[in-house]
Amino acid sequence: MASTTDAAPPGAAAPGTGPTGPETPPAPNDQASLKVVPARHYARWAAAVAVIVLVAQFVHGLATNPVWEWGVFRDYVLSETIVEAVWITLQLTAYATVLGFLLGTVLAFMRLSRSPVLQTVAWTYVWIFRSIPMIVQLVFWFNLSALYEELGVGIPFGPVFWSVDSDSLIGTIGAAVIGLTLHQAAYAAEIVRGGVVSVDHGQLEAAAALGIPRLRQIRRIVLPQAMRAILPTAGNEIIGLLKGTSVVYVMAIGELFYQVQVVYGRNGRVIPLLLVATAWYVVLTSLLSVAQYYVERHYARGADRTPPPTPLQRARRFVRDLRAAAAQRTQPVPARKPLPLGDSR
């Protein structure tokens, strides 16, 4: 859409035609009729051609290579088994995200608190759960009942008042959610802490000087500003988590990747079924990316004097400008003006 960015400024356009050039210098009021020749980027054109060829080859391969088996893809992509598996993947992601970031936020503020006990507990938590590979941790939780057959409430080292079989309390999905959450919380804690320390110290001082209660300082003053630094990394983490839920296949939970494996184990159509999983992961992460854009925009309020337009607004403006240009062209206009890209409505 930027049709004028390549153009050199008119004053510096052609040195040869300047007053010191060999030709007769044009009269100063002739400046408007000087033609602007945009710089030619030959390397860029060559690169574009190379990219187009590569993409065309790939698309051609997708369409013609029979191994992709698009028919099988079509049969399975919206089948009940797969959609149910996607639903489980989404649930695991949602629970682990919400619980993980809640626990992570608490841990972050424990780490930032003035209490040495809380600081140490938070640091130790992060240290342990960042040190254990997620898959190892998940298998641990899966085998919890081997470690503790029963879980109960009572006096430490003393009598137990109430207890329950650990398998029936947690269940497989529960174990997966706990594993993902605890893992996620360790990373979330560091992300949130990073966001909080990036907020100008003067903000906390001002809030303290105004006597705003501590929790309110955090919720209303610090966190909204920290969100600007938290969100890009948090977006990474959540997208990573969505894909990371595929490791719970080790617990035989019917999430997307596990189901796909089950199906191709049965019918041997490995490639098209991997394609099914890929398509779903791409769609879901794309939705998350779009959501991230708008959440980031929300927390950027007050940061810019005038917020930049959303892609949707930009697209609408582009269409409007195109129409305006077309309307102009149908009328006999002496000279074509550049599109009014800069001004809004």
Partner: peptide, 15 residues
Amino acid sequence: THIGFVFQNFNLFPH
């Protein structure tokens, strides 16, 4: 809350 404080750098809440 009984003591008003005005900072050199204002420290208004930008959001």
